Amino acid sequence: MTLYYTMCFGLLMSEIGLFGAIIAPMPFAMRKRMMHFLSENPIVAKIQYALKITFIFVAVLFIDALQRMVRIAQEGAAAKAKVEMADVRAETTYAARRFYAQRNLYLTGATLFLSLILSRVFYILLDFINVQEEYNTLQAKTAKGSGVVGENEELRKRVKELEGQVKTYQAADRDFETLKKQADQQASEYNRLADEHIKATGAFSNKKAD
């Protein structure tokens, strides 16, 4: 296998390893740190840019391998159409060429296909993590709001209790004012009767003296 196909095979193995690491079961906090590192780290961004250029060359290799396989298939069909005696060495060479062409086609095709799947899964997981973070934030705000609502309910109950106490005190104050008025009236009546009694007693004493 030539150097560029060897590099393509190494790239395919790296994609398989990264894909397995991304979809492996792990705690949410660990997955979040890993995804944020892969999406925000500047070194990883440079590596991704280099890989995009590499995938362009892999696509060129895929097209070349496809053309070779088509050409070899056409040569095989033309050889079968001939009535000449079959040559074992020629058939062996043809089988080897066809095997290498198919291997290169499958290798480059699998690398390109897995790169598309890996990119799609990566962004789906990243969106999922962002949505989960927004959900956790909203849930925390809702819980905080529920706590405030609970405090407001307690304050309302306390206000109602205080209003009841105020009404009780107001009723007691009204009763006190009523009793005070009654006491004042009774005192006034007593003073009036006392004055009348004094006047009557004084008048009787004056008549007796006469």
Results as ranks from 00 to 15, higher is better:
32 K>I: 02
89 R>I: 02
130 N>S: 14
66 L>W: 03
65 A>L: 02
185 Q>C: 07
81 A>M: 07
140 A>D: 04
154 E>R: 11
174 R>G: 05
95 A>K: 01
7 M>G: 03
12 L>M: 01
206 N>M: 11
151 E>I: 08
70 V>R: 14
186 Q>S: 10
124 I>D: 15
29 A>W: 00
53 I>V: 12
16 I>M: 07
183 A>F: 10
113 F>Y: 14
64 D>P: 01
5 Y>V: 02
105 L>N: 11
137 T>S: 09
92 T>A: 11
210 D>T: 12
57 F>S: 15
150 G>Q: 13
115 S>R: 15
79 A>T: 00
167 K>P: 01
55 F>I: 01
141 K>F: 07
157 K>H: 09
66 L>F: 10
185 Q>K: 08
166 V>K: 11
31 R>T: 04
8 C>W: 04
174 R>F: 13
196 E>K: 05
3 L>T: 09
27 P>K: 00
196 E>N: 03
146 S>W: 04
9 F>G: 05
204 F>Y: 13
187 A>Q: 12
193 L>R: 15
128 F>I: 10
140 A>M: 07
155 L>A: 02
58 V>R: 00
105 L>K: 11
100 Y>M: 09
164 G>A: 15
117 I>A: 07
189 E>A: 07
201 T>P: 01
201 T>E: 07
147 G>H: 01
116 L>I: 13
153 E>P: 03
52 K>T: 06
210 D>Y: 04
183 A>S: 05
147 G>L: 10
106 Y>R: 14
140 A>T: 10
183 A>H: 11
162 L>I: 08
179 L>N: 12
151 E>P: 03
153 E>G: 09
76 G>M: 04
137 T>M: 06
9 F>I: 08
36 H>N: 12
121 V>K: 07
3 L>I: 06
74 Q>N: 10
53 I>K: 03
199 K>N: 13
73 A>S: 14
114 L>R: 05
38 L>P: 03
35 M>L: 14
63 I>W: 00
132 Q>G: 01
167 K>V: 05
34 M>H: 03
4 Y>C: 10
149 V>H: 11
145 G>I: 07
169 Y>A: 06
131 V>K: 13
7 M>P: 02
148 V>I: 11
47 I>N: 05
195 D>H: 03
72 I>H: 02
156 R>F: 05
88 V>T: 08
29 A>D: 05
168 T>Y: 15
